[in-house]
């Protein structure tokens, strides 16, 4: 029990952020009309591309003078992350554009 309390105390800020983020995610998304399920999923998918920040940090401090598998994988992570971000937002926009022009 004491361990649990200790753990909570040590990471209280992180635990707060997690709890509130989950709550926020649920609140923001609930009651979405079915029309928007696909764009919402696709837009959220693009946001999960935030992993790209990790890719930038990784490659940003990598040693470029020697070739390494790590560097190649890091670049791959960066490219994948960008694909997720740019592709995700672009495709969502294209979908929503389609929804819009119908309002004659």
């Amino acid at each position: 029990m004491e361990n649990v309390l200790h753990y909570f105390f040590e990471y209280k800020e992180t635990i707060f952020i997690i709890a509130l983020s989950i709550f926020l995610g649920i609140e923001v998304i609930s009651h979405v009309p079915a029309v928007l399920h696909t764009p919402l999923m696709s837009g959220a998918n693009a946001i999960s591309g935030v992993i790209i920040i990790g890719g930038i940090i990784l490659v940003g401090h990598a040693n470029l003078t020697t070739f390494s598998v790590e560097l190649v994988l890091g670049l791959l992570a960066l490219i994948f992350g960008t694909l997720n971000v740019v592709g995700g937002f672009a495709v969502t926009d294209r979908m929503l554009e389609m929804f819009k022009k119908k309002k004659k």
Binding site: I17, S21, G25, V28, A44, I47, S48
Partner: peptide
């Protein structure tokens, strides 16, 4: 891993939204 708040919040937000859906 990076103690990066933007990544944590963005990721959990998407996770929660995805679970709701």
């Amino acid at each position: 891993i990076y103690s990066n708040q933007a990544m944590i919040l963005g990721g959990i937000l998407v996770g929660a939204a995805g679970m709701i859906l």
